[in-house]
Design a binder for these strands. Sequence first.
RNA 1: GCUAGGGUGGCUGAGCGGUUUAGGCGACGGGCUGCAGACCCGUUCUACUGGGGUUCGAAUCCCUACCCUAGCUCCA
Length: 394
Amino acid sequence: MLVYNTKTRTKEEFIPQRSGEVRAYICGPTVYDYCHIGHARTYINFDVLRRYLEATGYDFIHVQNFTDVDDKITKRAAERGITPTQLSDEFIEEYFRDMDALNVKRASRYTRASDYIGKIVEITERLMAKGIAYRSGGTVYFDVEGAGGFGELVSGIEGAVTDPIMSLGKRGPFDFVLWREGGEAEQSWDSQIGRGRPGWHTECVAMAMDSLGEVLDIHWGGMDLIYPHHECSALVARAITGKPFARYWMHNNFVTLSGEKMSKSAGNTAYIKDVLEGFRAEVLRTYLLSKGYRERMEYSEAGMERMEKTYDLMVEGAAEARKGGGGAGVSSCIKEYADAFFGALDDDLETGQALAVVERLSWEITGGAPDKDFAGASRIYDAVEGVLGIKLGR
RNA sequence: GCUAGGGUGGCUGAGCGGUUUAGGCGACGGGCUGCAGACCCGUUCUACUGGGGUUCGAAUCCCUACCCUAGCUCCA
């Protein structure tokens, strides 16, 4: 399979470290609010990657975190008069409700940042011992220059950041927080390096390494995480192990609303739970897979209405294909379609192209091409359900 | 600056090396209507940012230029 690696900005042949086994980590949500359809796109595409690799014979180990240590969590919890843990619990439950509805397979393991404070402290101490982290006041910073600078995933950051925060005591403008003394109201933990709480970037390193070892096969996330989160995580990991954090970095593009990235602060957010009040979950899943994961995708109700028709057509096609049972052979025309379908997925998970094949087949099999032989078509619909994870009704 | 996705007929929007046109909207004509709308039927637009290249053949692949959009220490 070819996958686009953010690190090299090219499609590469996917080869895991151990044959037959894939160790993959995906950044989960910060659990202080409901998930929107951008989250859905991220986890659905990753889910398809998993299903595809499993279908081709790999053992896929999928670890996903929940970021439950964060300013937004303490703030939101304080507003509601509950503990950060109560708030996180609530939205983790909501996360599962949404993802189960969308037929996203559960991860092999879920980790919570708050369970990894000890490991995070350990990492911070190791970095301090190596001289790559330094204390300034109550804060421990990571020395970006000292670690060799950025460049694992991004370049030209200096040009993007017009006003790097050069707060008192930081050695370099891009140095980031590993550990910060916490105030009374915030989440904080006692540790050898003082009472406080960790920075975001070390959390994922601690969780991923603990669960999957020093080098991941695949690290996935939304492309808004490339910088700073993944770049910084990669730097931390390399500083500790001397090895790259991940062999393949994969990032999906955004879902836009009226041409703009959804943003909670700007108020243009389509929550999964709200969308599912008006549309079936299978339609949303199909919609979010109707373009390749690296393309930007515009969400609109009009688009969803169109997708309902496409989805219904696929359901009809599946019913038609399964009418005759399954025993018969595979016609040459179905073989072509199957090749196109799996070929699309094999080429960097081109789900949009794969779906286009199914759409065409569905149109033809339901009457559009009466002269063609569709023997064996059910195997394609089986793959739509099994690999794309789109249920086609019963 | 860096990164990604694009530039297709009046508009919107598919197409991903060749054949039969995408489709939708609009416009035009007709049907139905006292008129209009809605609806139905038919017709019309033959397009691919500029410049190179590969090929028997390119909107489709490669190079290049220009332009647009989005993102770039809160973010999936």
